[in-house]
Design a protein around this nucleic acid. Structure first.
Lengths: 190, 190
DNA sequence: ACCTGAACACCGTTCAAGT
DNA sequence: ACCTGAACACCGTTCAAGT
């Protein structure tokens, strides 16, 4: 049967979930698909592009939201974090794809957060900056959280009660700093 | 002559500066040091640990600062960003080392930012969270900035006037969001 | 159009054996 | 104590040649 982009991303995602990003190699993926490594390069220009497609797959649950700007930021970020935590090394993979400019889905998130900042009253030239700041936070926090989670899950159940109490609350706290900062920079408060 | 940790980190830093993080391999480094790859494993447990030592080298210019908490945060972050921009792929390397918990210097930065947040009036349990948020921002922003800078420097001088106007101002804006957020969370304002 | 086979130029890490 | 040599088990990418 012929290889389709969709199949490749499917299998890549399952390799990611079962073995992690370190084992998501072009060769390993090709083996899993029963094709030669070169076959992948007919469908994708390079590994970065393929990982970008996996990132967009991971981010499909992140959708449009409505309501006051604060709620839109909070919901979008919560959806983003949930999506990342739903796949092994999800935060690391999406971070890398975002940095490489290979994720269309992240561009969508960026635009929606920028629109929310705009509605908050932030000048249009600075709204994208505010949106980027929020994304840096979500990616940084979640990558950190996920590496601890995965480390703990791997048998090392050391003193996690001290650190891991209420990650949702911790996440919300840092996000609130940015939301308050955005509110402070409004020209006109809603 | 015998290999010392110091020599290894020296040469590793120069490989980083001249060829970038992708070319900073254990084998390449060993070749540059006229030693066999295995020799490096006498001095460092693994590549992560060696990169952590390079990260700490990069961060030596980031020192203690004094003054009101807002200035301390601003100065620490400015020093951090400057240090990262002084080495090819500096932000990416330090980001990875911080995430892996391999940089003592970043732990120092974290503690100093946490102390500043504490002085701002943030509850002690949340001060470290605030400090982490600031670090996620600086690392995210600077990695982004540096990848654009390096891409532009590599001949592609496309429309950078649109995006690259005043990166210092852009950096300060995002940081100000967090500082304002921290101020909003103070129990007692100074 | 889509894929194979084989090659090119690499990796990180380990470890017996040498000095 | 410190390092070599050689091996193990891999990488991403290219490209002539096949169907």
């Amino acid at each position: 049967m012929q290889l389709s982009k969709h199949d490749v991303v499917d299998v890549a995602t399952s390799v990611l979930d079962n073995y992690g990003i370190a084992d998501l190699s072009m060769r390993r993926l090709a083996r899993e698909l029963n094709v030669s490594p070169g076959a992948l390069y007919w469908h994708f220009e390079n590994k970065q592009q393929l990982l970008g497609a996996v990132a967009d797959r991971i981010l499909t649950p992140v959708g449009e939201v409505t309501g006051p700007w604060r709620d839109r930021i909070r919901q979008t970020c919560a959806q983003l974090r949930d999506a990342l935590l739903s796949h092994t090394d999800g935060a690391e993979l999406v971070s890398a794809s975002f940095a490489a400019g290979q994720s269309e889905a992240m561009t969508g998130v960026l635009n929606r957060l920028g629109a929310a900042a705009g509605d908050a009253g932030v000048a249009s030239g600075q709204a994208e900056l505010a949106a980027r700041s929020v994304i840096y936070y979500v990616l940084g926090f979640t990558a950190d959280e996920q590496s601890r989670l995965q480390w703990d899950a791997a048998g090392a159940d050391v003193a996690q009660t001290v650190w891991a109490e209420e990650p949702d609350t911790r996440f919300a706290f840092g996000l609130q700093l940015l939301i308050d900062g955005i509110a402070a920079h409004s020209h006109a408060e809603a």
